[in-house]
Design a protein around this nucleic acid. Structure first.
Length: 302
DNA sequence: TGTGATGTTGAATG
DNA sequence: GCATTCAACATCAC
């Protein structure tokens, strides 16, 4: 049975090869979907991936798994990954921060972490996969769900014991699930820069570079500010804004193919006037990441 | 042709 | 044990 999967995989993979390279490239290029690079995988984007996953994958037996590039499979080779999943059924999914865990019918899970450029693409039989598809699940009804990742920073794991893995990972509470008591408690016990805190997935899971900049901007606090220098009201404001921004994004994002023009962080252009003509946008490296903030609007507390 | 990029990890340093 | 910085990962787009 395992060999049968391998044969299927080989046939499927090889059958896509014979087209002349140039033609192949052009076809792939045309098939490139604009939303491909649009959804940067922070919490709201992964929430959207979860909806895509649920609609495309839940309760459909997996007919075959075709792995084009096993670089992103972090604990199994392509063949073993295919063997573990072929014939199985995804029955549920669970998101925590930027991590999505797909539950299999016999208790194991597949971790989908999207890195910087991971994406999910469902498609119908006969449709051309995305240019950067790294593996694809084909279900018994012949629909496919492809995992796309140009930069191969995604981390796909096959997990026999999710609970144990989560303990080892030490992932913080989901940013949308965390309560004010928990969040405020963390802010009291931790030291350091505000942005570094928001980005630390061990403290709080789900906030990435772009939403972190937006939260700091709306809170009028410089991202390099020390959290121990912030007032209780400011801490509460950060918490409220985080919930508001992520919550709104989670509601709106699934309705878009790509970010609309009035999406957040449109102000993230260096040396331009800030929103409403207030201050000047500056670019700097803070917490090791490219950071934009509005000088003259966001105050620095050190 | 060089530069920078949204995430995470691990090593090195303070 | 923390906090911080940096390099590495691999590739694409500009």
């Amino acid at each position: 049975m395992r060999n049968q999967a391998a044969v299927f995989a080989t046939i499927f993979f090889c059958s896509r090869k014979p087209a002349p390279l140039l033609l192949h490239f052009i076809v792939r290029r045309l098939a490139f979907r604009p939303e491909n690079t649009a959804h940067m995988p922070e919490l709201p984007e992964v929430h959207t991936f979860q909806q895509v996953f649920n609609a495309a994958a839940l309760h459909r037996p997996i007919a075959e798994v075709v792995v084009h590039d096993d670089k992103i499979l972090r604990n199994l080779g392509g063949q073993a990954f295919a063997d573990h999943l072929q014939g199985r059924i995804f029955i549920d999914s669970y998101r925590r921060g930027k991590y999505l865990f797909a539950a299999l019918d016999q208790g194991a899970h597949v971790q989908l972490h999207f890195g910087m450029t991971g994406d999910l693409f469902p498609y119908a039989p006969g449709e051309e996969p995305s240019r950067f598809e790294r593996f694809v699940w084909r279900f018994t009804d012949d629909t496919c769900l492809g995992f796309d990742d140009p930069r191969k920073f995604a981390r796909i794991l096959y997990l026999e014991n999710l609970e144990k893995y989560l303990v080892e990972l030490g992932l913080g509470e989901d940013a949308l699930a965390i309560t004010w008591e928990e969040f405020g408690g963390l802010l009291e016990q931790k030291k350091g820069g505000l942005k570094a805190f928001l980005l630390n997935q061990h403290h709080l899971a789900g906030v990435g570079n772009l939403y972190a900049d937006e939260i700091c901007f709306q809170a009028q606090i410089h991202p390099a500010s020390r959290i121990e220098r912030l007032s209780p009201a400011q801490k509460r404001r950060i918490f409220d804004l985080m919930k508001e921004i992520l919550g709104a994004a989670v509601k709106q994002l699934p309705h878009y193919k790509s970010y609309p023009e009035n999406w957040w962080w449109g102000w993230r252009v260096a040396d331009q006037p800030g929103p409403n003509g207030v201050g000047v946008v500056r670019k700097a490296t803070i917490a090791g990441r490219t950071t934009y903030f509005v000088e003259g609007w966001q105050k620095l507390y050190v």
